[in-house]
Design a protein around this nucleic acid. Sequence first.
DNA 1: TAATATTAATAGTATTACTATTATATTTGC
DNA 2: GCAAATATAATAGTAATACTATTAATATTA
Lengths: 224, 224
Amino acid sequence: MEKLQLHITISPDLYTKDPESSVLGQKIVSKSIEMINDLGFEDFTFKKLGLEIGSNESSVYRYFESKHALLVYLIDWYWSWVEYRLVFATLNVPSVEARLTQAISILTAEVTEDNSFSYINEVLLNKIIITESSKAYHTKAIDSENQKGYYKTYKRVVQRVSDFVSEINPSYEFPHMLISTVIEGAHHQLYFSKHLPALTDFEEGKNNIVRFYTDLVFNTLSHK
Amino acid sequence: MEKLQLHITISPDLYTKDPESSVLGQKIVSKSIEMINDLGFEDFTFKKLGLEIGSNESSVYRYFESKHALLVYLIDWYWSWVEYRLVFATLNVPSVEARLTQAISILTAEVTEDNSFSYINEVLLNKIIITESSKAYHTKAIDSENQKGYYKTYKRVVQRVSDFVSEINPSYEFPHMLISTVIEGAHHQLYFSKHLPALTDFEEGKNNIVRFYTDLVFNTLSHK
DNA sequence: TAATATTAATAGTATTACTATTATATTTGC
DNA sequence: GCAAATATAATAGTAATACTATTAATATTA
């Protein structure tokens, strides 16, 4: 598969200085993805990051006002990328059912190939979303941050797929619950499969998570 | 409703000194539940707790070796309490379907009454589970802690309800995924309903979350 | 009453998540 | 091609955190 040269635009509210605008900024994003994966978000610090990229803690602060802000940026980047893939995969697909099937697959499958963007490793970023993203919004500041639009992209993705659901079954009462349950659920299952397997029915190579959520959605929509 | 005098036993692995064994220990648990709710887990500290209970930071450390250990204790207490309610509510219910319906309701409804235990506020504890519990297991130490049995009770609850699922439909492939999706999903929906309502279809007083998950499970099991 | 255990008080440590200031590169505008 | 503007690095500093260690005071029990 060839590398796509596409561009993801992130709202300026999510950074102090645009990390895409300089080599240092790109290194900050790129290396922080690696380090958050290696160390976990708690043990990751701007000081360690500065050291790794041959730069300084204070330089990182010129791009992101806090560790939390960097995590929010990465999450938004991820959902922007998912939204792009969602649009791309459902464009020119005439059947809504097929579009929804595609969407569920994109939302629930583990990312295994890193090939779209030069300095962002999507495989690692997906792992961060799975293990760290809930820490971003389970915060006392959630309401004010939500108002500032920090989670806009994620909400738009949910809305987009919920629209397929409503198109298939316009009388279905809970399209948003269904889709947010699928997204968050799949992330939990992927995490559980590696760390708390008793909570799951994962089997290597059998695609159980995608199958489980696909069946769940279509069974739910075909009922009554 | 009268107060039940029942007793919940927590594995000694989850504390340094049993908090139930002294007034100070009970005050630590009781006040920490209040304070984690007020401040959020990040801003809650043993120093602040000591101050509030008229005791000292170092005294708290005799009961729990860390803030994290205290959270794990609270989570285990919560699931032990849920398990008790689960057993109680399904005892002498002859139909499996009715037992599963009861179970889903216990797992997905918000706790609104605090009446079983003297020094533990179950309403607040339920809120902590909803907003803070994912922080306990999204940690680099998850595997070693899981091995030490830290999440045994939660896993037992999932197993218990999965067994109802398998009894209703023995050929259903994903009973654990289904139940863990319901539990984690309901917590997310309760959180979203208060902070990110665009991700949900919550309506005050309409019991949508319980209805959504009940329908989801029974539709899934009745299919094919 | 003495021994023992529990709790409180004090002090201290390394680290964190920042802020502020200044010095040194690098880029750009003319 | 040089000055001005800007970006980055280095250094230092702060308040707070998550603990540990030690000692002193207070209960409990034998």
